[in-house]
Amino acid sequence: MHGPALSGWLLMVLCAVAGASCLARTRGETGEVRRAGRAEAAMGFGMAAMALPAALVRPPGWAWAVYTVLFGGAALRALWFIRGGGHHLPHHAHHLVGSLAMVYMAVAMAPGAGAGGHAGHGAPPPGGVPLLTGLLLAYYALYVLASAGRLIPVPVAAGVAVDGGDGGGGARPELALACRLTMGIAMFAMLLTL
């Protein structure tokens, strides 16, 4: 990632903790909740690796290709689960957008990105395509605001059943939502550095 080393370290720690939290959430779970937790953990750890400040630890030139393959595979996995539809469709669609955004950032930040041609000859500008970056920033800004709004406690009338309904979070759906919110904020911050 491009940007100050301190913010890179903070972002890396935030993503690693979110990934570890998602992974810990999968213990004792089955089915969709376990799959979602593992996918979120992989995204968190991948984001942490990508956020590692290049000023202190220079990633090898092939690291960006590994990120592209890893997150491309995650995008294909999300597409596989989207085909089934169901009430988890929005969650899988979000994973698809996130995985494709990580592929986009890996390609945009690869050594020599945008240097394959001259300005005006079809080469993307260094750091990515401004319109696509702007659309992803808008998506994640809205996602973060919506997720934060769902974390605000709402008074419940006595005798009314409460449903977590967030796409799988086990016994503590607010932890799953907080993890997703954290990674949404981190993705927004990473996109800002393009």
Rank of each mutant, 00 (worst) to 15 (best):
A48T: 03
Y143I: 01
A110T: 05
A148Y: 04
Y67Q: 07
A65K: 13
L96C: 14
M109I: 04
P59K: 03
A54R: 01
L56N: 14
A146M: 09
Y104A: 14
P130M: 12
W64L: 01
Y67L: 07
V57C: 14
G114T: 06
G85F: 13
L100H: 09
L145Y: 03
P155K: 11
G122K: 03
L136W: 06
A123Q: 13
V129G: 01
A75S: 13
A108W: 05
R150D: 11
G165N: 12
G117T: 07
L52W: 02
A123H: 11
A115N: 13
M105G: 11
A106S: 15
V103N: 09
G114Y: 09
L100P: 04
G85R: 10
L70F: 02
V69W: 03
R150F: 01
A157W: 03
I185M: 11
T68M: 13
L175M: 15
P60N: 05
G165I: 00
A108S: 08
D166E: 15
Y140Q: 12
V103R: 07
T68R: 13
G85Q: 12
A178R: 10
M109C: 08
I82G: 06
A148H: 02
V66W: 11
L76K: 00
A108R: 06
A178Y: 02
P90F: 06
A51Y: 06
R172W: 09
P173S: 09
H92R: 11
A119Y: 10
Y139V: 05
G86S: 15
C179H: 13
H121A: 14
L79W: 00
G61N: 00
A101Q: 08
P126W: 09
L79D: 05
Y143T: 08
V160P: 06
I152Q: 06
G72F: 00
G165E: 11
A55W: 14
P59L: 02
G117S: 12
L89C: 01
S99P: 06
V162R: 12
G98K: 07
A176N: 08
A110I: 01
G134Q: 10
A48C: 12
L135S: 08
V144I: 04
G169N: 11
T182K: 01
G85N: 14
S99D: 03
P153R: 09
L177P: 09
P111A: 04
G127W: 01
G159R: 14
D163E: 13
G159L: 07
V57E: 11
A54G: 10
H95C: 10
P155N: 14
G98P: 09
H87F: 13
H88D: 15
G134R: 09
V69K: 00
L175N: 12
G159I: 10
R150V: 08
P173Q: 10
A51Q: 04
H92K: 02
A123I: 02
G85A: 09
P90L: 10
A101H: 02
A48K: 08
P126S: 13
T68A: 15
G164N: 05
A48Y: 06
P126F: 12
A161K: 05
Y139Q: 07
L137H: 05
M187R: 06
L70H: 05
P111Y: 01
V162M: 10
Y104L: 15
G120K: 00
A186I: 13
L181E: 03
I82H: 00
A65D: 15
L76T: 07
W64A: 00
A146Y: 03
